[in-house]
Amino acid sequence: MKRLLVVDDEPHVARVLRVSLAKDGWAIEVAHDGAEALLAIATNPPDVMITDIQMPGMGGEALCHELHARYPTRPFPILVMTSMTARDQRDWARALGGIEFLEKPVSPRRVASLLTQMLDQEKKHV
């Protein structure tokens, strides 16, 4: 089963994704902020991570930077959820590279097709 780590302080996002992606064979794990996500990744890295930007404690941007510092080879693809208004504030992600963006409210169908695409790409790289 492919594992997706959802990092969001709002629990409904993870639940919506779990319900919608279950039929595609995704198991969803949840972390409520960046620090929790780092712990979860250290014990058992997921196949893909989706993270919100704004969270209490460590936010999505800090999480991505931290992951980049800890795992420079990037063990799994990252999707970042962002609001429509924050379209221009993506330079940091471009600098890190390999980060895809999703606009909130996220469309589970879009996530499903993006996940498939990303994993296909990963496979090609390997």
């Binding site: 409904h12 639940r15 919608s20 409210p105 996220v106 589970p108």
Partner: peptide, 8 residues
């Protein structure tokens, strides 16, 4: 959540 997904 399924309903919510549809609304999303």
């Amino acid at each position: 959540a399924g309903e919510l997904a549809e609304r999303y």
